[in-house]
Every structure is written in C-alpha cells, then in structure tokens.
Nucleic acid binder design. Structure first.
Lengths: 361, 361
DNA sequence: TCGAACATTGTTAACGTTAGCACTCGAGGC
DNA sequence: GCCTCGAGTGCTAACGTTAACAATGTTCGA
C-alpha cells in the first residue's frame, strides 16, 4: 500500500495556512465567490461551486474566525461565567449549554470565578466582553451575579442561568420552591412531627428557594419550624450539620443537595442511628449515584442539562431581538429508601396510624 | 445626592462601542500611541499616558479581541476538548485549566464531545482550529483522542491531558499504575487471597493504567488474577459489576473510580454482606464525598486541578517554542473504612498470621 | 556648536474577511 | 430589435488593530 494521499494531513512546516485568496486563485475565481460558497449565501453557479469546493478541500482551507468576527461584528461565540467549583448542577448545566450552543453553530468560552463577590463576577463579564462574545450566560446562580448580569446586560446580552430574565422572579425559582414543599409534605405524610433543614449558602437563589418551600410547607401544616442549619454544598459541611440536627433530636432532615445529605447520613450513622429507621433524610439534585448510596437516597431530580439548553435558547433569541420564554423545568421528587415512617417515640407506645396532630411545643 | 456621574455605566442605546480612534481623538494623540498605552509596550511620555488612560476610562474603551487576533495571529485563547459527561476528574481538570490559563492571560473555549469516536474528537479539534485558538488541550484522555491530538498537533499545538506529550508514555500513566499497585498490595497485606477488579472502559488510558497496576501486583505476589469486570464509570455499572464479583466470591474489590465503588458497595450491602466485614472495597479519585460514604471509602486521591494547571503550562510553553516537562502528579492511597482484614473463611479456623501462600487454583 | 543617540510620536500598510455596488451576460416581454 | 430583469460574478472599501518605519524634538559628549 502507498502512503495515504491526503495532502491536507501533511501541511509541512513552512506552509502558510491557506486563506480565501489562495482558494480563489486555485479555483480561478474571485475571493468574493469563494466567500459566497463558504457562507452558502448568494447565488453561485453549480459548476463554479464545485470547483471552489474542490479547491477548499485540496487546500484544507478553514475560514479565519477572527477576520470574520471583525467584519461581521458577530463572533458566533457565547460566554459562560461559572463558579469555579465542580458542583454537579453547574457542571451539568454547562453540558447543556455546550450542547445547545454547538447545535446552533456557536462555540462557548468559559470563565470560571473563584469567589462570588460582585466585583469578581463583574470582572468576569468584562473579560468576556473583551473577548467579543455575542452574549453571555451566568451559571453562577448567585445573588451577587444578578447585579453583575444586569450591569453587563447594558453592554451586551446576558442571561442568568436559572432563567431569571432581567426582571421578575423566574419560573425556575418557583419550581424549586414547589419541589421543596413536596419533599417536606412527603416527610410530614410519613408521620414526622416536623422536618429539620440543612440548607446551602443563603446567597444562592436555589438555596433560598428550597428553604422557602420547606418553611412554607411546615407553616401551612402548623408545625414548629426548626432553625435551619447552613452548609456550603459539600458533604463535609453536611456532616457537621448532621451532628447539629442530631443534637436537636430531628427525625427527618431535608438537605439542600445530595452531597450534604451524604454528610448528614454519615453523621447519623456514626452516632448509631439508622436511616430511615430513626431519621429520614432527603437530598436535592439526584446525582447519578444517589440511587446507590447506603441507603439509596430519596431526593429531587433536576434536569440541569435542559436548564442549560434553555439558557442558550433565551440568549440566542435575545441576540436576534426576540424574547424567548425559558419556561420552567419541573424538578421531581424521587422517593427511595432514605425516608420512612417516623420512629415510634415511646418504647412500647401503640403504633398510631396518623400522628398528625399539631406539635405540643 | 445627584445621580452617579459615571458615563461608562450608561452607554445608551445608539452609542457605538468606542474604538481606538475614538480614544485617540479624545486624548488628542494618534491611534498608535493609544495602542502603545493599552499594550504597555513602547515608550510613552508619562503625561501622554495619563491623558490616554483617562480617555480610555471616560469612554469605557476595551480593545477589540477579533481585530487584535487578526493582526497578531494570536488570539490569547486556548481550546479544551472535553468529554460531554460531568465526570469528576475531567470537570476538576477543567477548573485547573481555567485557573492557569486565566492567570497567564488566556481565555478558554471549551468543546464537549458527546461520544469518543476518533472522528468526533477530530472534528472537535477542527472546530477549535476554526475558532483560531492558539492551542488546545484534550481532556478526553481516551485512546481515540490520542490519534486526533497527534493529527491536530500538525496544524496547531495540542496537548493531551494526562501529560502525554506527543511521544512516549506519560509519567502520569505510570503514577496511576503505581497507585493501583499500592491499592492491591494494601488489600493483599490485609490478608485477602486475591483482589477482584471492576475497571472502567478499556479504551481509557486511565482504566488501563489502573488495571495494569492491579494485575502486576497480583502477578508479583503470585495470586490468581480474576477476570476483571468492566463498567462505564457510573455507580449503576458498578452495581451490576458488584453482583458479578459477589457471585465470584470476592473478598476484596478494587474499583476504577469512586462512583463504581459506590455501586459495588450497594450491591454487596443489598446481598446482606458487610463492607469491610465480608468484603473490602477500594475506589479511585477520592471524590469529596468519599470520606462521608457508608462506610467511608478507601480510595486514591488525585489532584486533578493540578493536572489541568500543568497541561496549560506545557501548552503555553509549546506556544513559545519551549519544551516544558509536565512532571507527574502522584496519586496517593487514602485508607479509610471500606477496607479491612480478610474474613476468616472456615467458621472456626484458627487465625493465620499471614495467609500469603499462593492460592490453590 | 555639531552630530549622534535616544525618547517620543505619527504615518502607512497590512491582517483575512464580508457588504455594497457595479458589471456582464443570456432570457423573455413588448 | 430594444429594454428589462435576474443570475452570476468581480471590484473596492471597510472592520479595528498592530508592526515597521519615518519624523520629530532632546539630550549629551566632543
């Protein structure tokens, strides 16, 4: 067999990368015609087109994005500002953004921020503007970013990840509130007198939505609302929080995310309590391994990828001066084995069927 | 109080974004002088510089990246090709890449691939080349990508994530082999007669490195080498694999990553076995929640972020025609509570001190 | 006092692409 | 046969920046 006869695969060392003019010369047409073929716009005779296409293939020509962006004022690139962590939610949202952007012919430039100070986030947006992206998505669903997004939006189109669209509270927010309510009610239905809460950082909108849903359900059912414990999304913080709610005598704990729930379960187990025998624990997000934990975790499933896709849809709509409604992605309660009936308090107390009476204190 | 007197924050609707010429006119100098101030190169009189800087601030000028890239032939942007999943390792590596790139004044464009076919990966690199990035990093540590990277590297500088530098086997590979050996020896030292293995996809270099280390340790200790079971990194696949090794009567299982280990532990627990009482399980990667699982998982810690940083260092070095040795990041065995002494086989058998003799069959 | 070296600034020509207009044909209606 | 129309094509001027060179003064040693 002879060596592969693909000239494009061996550009040599001194060879300049081909430009429009090279293709034009080889095909014996003007640059403009080549440009028309490349962009697929305007009318080009079939024979000419074929000749040009062959020349392109032969030279391995690829249009220069910078030059195109310069003259078009469109880079076909969108920016994403994301929290530097590898949190499950943001990571998956990014996947969705990628997917949708690529499908629409856009590439994605990511800027990660290490902290969530307003200044840092603003700076990230400035950096993106400097990179001449067409628009940006903030996957930093933080309060801090809200102001930064609003400010940056004056300069170039920006979208906040959960779907907050500049004004008004996003549907996504209320979906999470509803899901958190469902979780709490599920626990109450199991006979727990009240539900403790291990929330995420208060400055995350998601955190607040979940806490709000939990509190609302409790208040509506006229139960005591225990003081929520705050974590930072990590299992380590969940562990610490777990020891706290343990000391508070909780029988049911709703956690702001699955990782914190893992930590809570650990703290409980270490103290000799069984989940769900003694204490029920619920997470949020439904990380892929949630179903395989010990015990399999009851949690709320979220379609983060879809959230990312919708962000792109909204942003791309904005670029074309259209307003696209993101619509809500409904999170769904997934009951597994970390939740169960409330433990019978007194040792030999007869099993009550529905201990639904308002708590004494 | 009067409204804030910051003209930059309210560019209005019809205002064109300012360009070099605008700044030059306002400052009463030539474009070139402004350019020099912006780039910080060349010599500019102090007074002139101050005047220009003020004009820049007043106009909120920001250089146009596209124009700069066009003339400089440097976009100051690097590309990353990553697997579309939100796997812990790649996600964290990306964080490291981001961090280092940003520190060096580069921004990062990410292309995610949904599958790992050579054609798909090659296409991703082509797309990046079209985006005129200065270089690219493959965080798709897959065999398929290796060829694609090599091919793309002919066109523009590319680096493969674990540190494979075009030729030769990377240090990173051997580090993983060593770590896997350490795991296996740890298990053997605990008295297990052999160690079963739940590996990742065979076409991942990491997978093979880990499997190789495991096999080597077993062979050196003259133990039977059980047929490894393959998973796909997910807990679900680990669960299925767990049932297999269970049927094979394993007393020690080394998993290719933590998530599969979670699945294995689940399968074991479900079958009424205790970990580590009946079976010891080890993971790989040390995801943050590993320490809080039930039981806390013995695993191998990896500094993925550092790997990402080093990739950038190597790539940026390449851009400046320097060869930078990535160096190896040594993974470290973290012993927690999922590993313990081998169970005593016969009910009342006297406890052997070191059951190190070669296995019967 | 003169010229050389230097610091500072300006002028001009790229970089690779696309938009806008102008041009050349052949076909078809009158 | 003339005019109009449209398809197909080419020419020219941007887009916003930087590199290379040229043109100023300015300073300093001889």
């Amino acid at each position: 067999m002879s060596p592969p006869a693909d000239p494009a695969s061996t550009p040599g060392e001194g060879t300049r990368t081909p430009v429009l003019a090279d293709v034009a010369e080889l095909a014996g047409v003007s640059q403009q015609t080549v440009s028309r073929v490349v962009r697929g716009s305007g009318s080009v005779a079939r024979r000419t087109r074929e000749r040009v296409e062959q020349a392109i293939a032969e030279l391995g020509y690829q249009p220069n994005a910078a030059a195109r962006a310069l003259v078009t004022r469109r880079s076909h690139r969108i920016g994403v500002v994301a929290a530097s962590t590898s949190l499950y939610g943001p990571a998956l949202t990014l996947v969705g953004v990628q997917e949708a952007a690529r499908a629409a012919g856009y590439s994605v430039t990511v800027v990660m921020v290490s902290d969530l100070l307003p200044a840092t986030v603003s700076e990230a947006f400035q950096e993106l503007r400097g990179q001449s992206v067409d628009g940006a998505i903030a996957v930093v669903p933080e309060d801090a970013s809200q102001a930064a997004v609003a400010a940056a939006d004056a300069t170039f189109p920006c979208v906040l990840a959960p779907g907050l669209d500049g004004a008004g509270v996003p549907d996504a927010y209320w979906s999470e509130v509803a899901a958190a309510r469902a979780v709490t009610e599920h626990l109450l239905d199991l006979g727990h007198r009240t539900v403790h809460h291990v929330g995420g950082p208060v400055d995350w909108a998601e955190s607040r939505a979940r806490s709000t849903g939990w509190r609302t359900a409790l208040v509506e059912a006229m139960r005591v609302v225990p003081r929520p414990v705050r974590g930072d999304w990590t299992a380590a913080s969940g562990y610490r929080a777990g020891r706290e709610v343990l000391a508070a005598g909780a029988t049911a704990v709703f956690c702001g995310n699955d990782h914190m729930a893992i930590g809570v379960v650990r703290a409980l187990t270490e103290a000799g309590l069984s989940v769900p025998g003694d204490v029920s624990v619920v997470g949020f997000d439904d990380v892929p391994e949630a179903a395989y934990l010990n015990p399999p975790l009851t949690t709320v499933h979220q379609d983060f990828t879809e959230i990312g896709r919708r962000c792109v849809r909204v942003l791309l709509g904005r670029l074309n001066r259209r307003v696209v409604e993101p619509g809500a992605v409904t999170p769904e309660l997934v009951v597994r084995q970390s939740t169960g009936p409330a433990p019978v308090v007194a040792s030999a107390a007869p099993r009550e069927d529905a201990p639904r009476s308002p708590v004494p204190g």
